[in-house]
Design a protein around this nucleic acid. Structure first.
Length: 576
RNA sequence: GGGCGCGUAGCUUAGCCUGGAUAGGGCACCGGGUUCCUAACCCGGCGGUCGAGGGUUCAAAUCCCUCCGCGCCCGCCA
């Protein structure tokens, strides 16, 4: 940087280092590691860009970090000094270990709320994107130095959960026939509770559409729950189904720090306090039947959704109102509040923000919105339409395929090890497949894509990690120290690998700043890819004087790959 | 109708915030590579009007406008 300003100075230009920095291309191209297009400078000075680039290259003072400067057309290309970069990078990776890529601790506490699926049945693929994005984001923020608490908001207040209680609190012979049919005949002993208890749900939902008296019964139950008169089994049913869903998520290495039950905000009076504030809000209005609404026009909501009802005519609360209470609590405990939401909740998010403004609350959550996972036939995955694929089904299929893959290449492993590897490979494939796409892009669920173990996949990264582990193992270099002489790393593949390694902290910082966690998946693939190329091009254990140094490089790759896998919630494998 | 998002080779995806040099991967397809550290790998090839049109700019996949197509939402559901 200083070199450029100096060179520009001797060429008779004054340049602002700040604006110059913004123009630098840090990724570089085929010819460079760092590039500077000089068009803008040339234009400002009324010079010819090509000539100016050449002049600047000529006048560039020697810099130990820069091996070579050359003008190429209107571009100034810098090649960094590989040994120097390698020395710094290897020292950082090997010195920091699991901490490489992370940031210093920061005091601002964050809450990441994600998943929060209603406890009404098994977890399906349509919901898994939320869980994977949310969990990955929490991991990325944590290593970036942010103290993160993850929360799962359990809706035990709404109609959905109430429908489960309604049906299960009735004696079985009192169930309407079409609903009863869903649990009879194919009842499986020992079936997961989410599956078993969720079985009647689609039928109940359909039944209610046709039967007003059943709808009224459910509404009465909602009122009872609201006033603390919930049937004894209400909470236990929700907990059972939740436990079933959580055991599936646990296989994807997704866990939560806290579970926040929605009913709490009704029970502790905070919803009432929110309603008091809403009643006093500038745009509150009372509907004919006693319902309370807010005219939220002027808060930037789309035209036809400005009248927001916050309390039903029968006095019961609504989801958005309870959500305000929940957010007020989050604001009291955390400095940053992040909600991971499907795009179908987009309007809810904006409504929430509008209502927070209505009651004079200055703070807002930030939202990570992702598009749905759809089925190939079109449309979202639906339990009722029978298009839902359960996460458990996907896991089962993935494990069975992974097992087959392991067995075709490893006959030497004990069964327990095969199982362990198959499970790890299966979850890697699923997590990677879901997280690799930018959240704003829609994803169509296809079995063959979700179960891919090669190319741009989780298992590919795991494989590279296992390969690096194998090299270290065979080289008798399982543990530090890893002495190295960076001056020996002169092969182009080594240089490229070092540059990729050096880019990890930047990749993590970017993901943390933008919540675009899919970029970590891209980085992991890039590093694995570079390592595989290096592996094929350059001998490690069979090399001569470079052996120690290359072993150190492999150790650094293994460490960084491991750190990236950890961010993705994927288990590293020493062998596979 | 309104709001939000998306549209990049046969399929899939990165890049868009912060405009720069021949738009980067993967799958599929074609051709190679294993007496050698794990072939879930590597090398080469094929394949692109970056949805369409206009504008801004020395320079547009990227910024602005219009249009087209697809998805979601517009409940006293969550």
């Amino acid at each position: 940087m200083a070199g450029i300003t100096k060179s520009a100075g001797s060429a008779g230009l004054t340049v602002d280092a700040e604006s110059l920095r913004a123009q630098l291309d840090l990724e570089g191209g085929a010819e460079s590691d760092i590039a500077l297009p000089v068009h803008r400078l040339a234009q400002g000075a009324g010079r010819d860009p090509g000539v100016l680039a050449a002049t600047l290259a000529e006048g560039f003072p020697p810099d130990p970090a820069i091996a070579r400067v050359a003008a190429h057309g209107a571009y100034l290309n810098f090649r960094v000094d590989t040994p120097r970069l390698a020395a710094a990078t290897l020292a950082a990776v090997l010195g920091l270990g699991p901490g490489y890529g992370g940031g210093p601790p920061t005091p601002a506490r964050a809450c990441v709320e994600h998943t929060s699926a209603n406890p009404t049945g098994p977890f399906h693929i349509g919901r898994v994107r939320n869980a994977i994005i949310g969990d990955t984001l929490a991991r990325v923020l944590r290593v970036s130095g942010v103290p993160v608490t993850t929360q799962y908001y359990v809706d035990d207040m709404g109609r959905q959960a109430t429908m489960i209680t309604w049906i299960w609190s009735m004696p079985r012979d009192a169930w309407p026939a079409p609903i009863r049919a869903t649990v009879e005949g194919e009842e499986v002993p020992g079936e997961k509770p989410d599956r078993y208890r969720g079985r009647p749900y689609p039928a109940v939902s359909a039944y209610l559409k046709e039967h007003a008296e059943a709808r009224e019964a459910v509404a009465a139950l909602v009122r009872a729950i609201e006033t603390g008169q919930a049937p004894a089994e209400h909470h236990a049913l929700a907990q059972q189904i939740l436990d079933g869903m959580l055991s599936s998520l646990a296989r994807l290495h997704i866990h939560f720090d806290e579970f926040v039950w929605e009913s709490r905000f009704v029970a502790d009076g905070s919803v009432d306090r929110v309603l008091d504030r809403l009643r006093a809000a500038p745009h509150a209005m009372r509907e004919e039947n006693g319902a309370l609404a807010i005219d939220a026009a002027g808060h930037g909501l789309p035209k036809e959704s400005t009248r927001v009802v916050v309390q039903r005519g029968d006095g019961t609360s609504l989801y958005v109102t309870r959500d305000i209470a929940y957010h007020l609590e989050k604001f009291a405990r955390f400095d940053r509040v992040i909600d991971v939401l499907g795009q179908d909740h987009q309007l809810h998010a904006r409504t929430l923000a509008a209502l927070l403004e209505e009651i004079g609350e200055a703070r807002r959550p930030s939202f990570v919105i992702y598009q749905d996972i759809t089925v190939p036939e079109g449309g979202r995955m639906s339990t009722r339409g029978g298009s839902a694929v359960w996460l458990d089904q996907l896991l089962e299929e993935a494990v069975s395929r992974a097992r087959k893959e392991v067995l075709t290449r490893r006959e030497d492993l004990p069964d327990s090890e095969v199982d362990r590897i198959a499970e790890a490979v299966a979850t890697a494939a699923i997590r990677y497949h879901v997280v690799r796409v930018a959240p704003e892009k829609p994803v169509v669920f296809r079995w063959e894509d979700a179960l891919s173990f090669e190319g741009r996949s989780g298992p590919f990264v795991q494989y590279s990690y296992a390969r690096a582990s194998s090299v270290l193992r065979k080289g008798g270099a399982d543990r530090p120290p890893y002495p190295f002489d960076a001056a020996l790393l002169t092969d182009p593949e080594e240089a490229a690998l070092v540059r990729t390694l050096a880019g990890f902290p930047r990749a993590v910082a970017y993901a943390a700043r933008t919540a675009h966690v899919h970029t970590i998946a891209g980085y992991a693939h890039e590093l694995a890819d570079r390592f595989n190329r290096f592996y094929h091009a350059v001998p490690v254990l069979k090399s001569g004087a470079e052996r120690e140094t290359r072993i150190a490089l492999v150790a650094a790759v293994r460490q960084t790959l491991g750190n990236a896998l950890d961010l993705l919630g994927i288990a590293p494998l020493e062998r596979m």
